[in-house]
């Protein structure tokens, strides 16, 4: 299964060698957890920016699946399906 991840410039600069749009093939459980694992595999260090010390989504980050904030869905357990678009943005944009 493949999903598309879209990042803001600052996240792309810091973690993905300026790749703002990433196609990611997922294996195993199709949830946000597997997506973050996949990102960490490709771009080491990214996971620590996305998850706080408590393992939940970091307060400074918003993650959207097809435009919906996963905090209002199932958080890290939000299921993903083929073709989903995931936006990851710093929460400062919500001001």
């Amino acid at each position: 299964m493949e999903v598309t991840i879209r990042l803001t410039s600052i996240l792309a600069t810091r973690f993905t060698e300026n790749n703002k749009v990433i196609a990611l093939k997922l294996e195993g459980k199709y949830s946000l957890v597997s997506l973050i694992d996949g990102l960490e595999g490709k771009f080491p260090g990214f996971q620590t920016a996305l998850q706080g010390k408590d393992g939940e989504i970091a307060d400074g980050i918003n993650i959207y699946v097809n435009g919906e904030n996963v905090r209002y869905l199932e958080g890290l357990n939000t299921p993903l399906k083929q073709g989903d678009v995931i936006n990851i943005i710093p929460a400062v944009t919500a001001g």
Binding site: Y64, E68, V85, N87, I89, A91, A94
Partner: peptide
């Protein structure tokens, strides 16, 4: 516009209160 991100105002209000991410940043 391609990036789809919806934010409730409630989230913003909470983040601008003491301890909230935006106010503290």
């Amino acid at each position: 516009i391609e990036d789809k991100a919806w934010v409730f105002e409630k989230e913003t209000v909470e983040r601008w209160q003491p301890g909230g991410h935006l106010l503290e940043k």
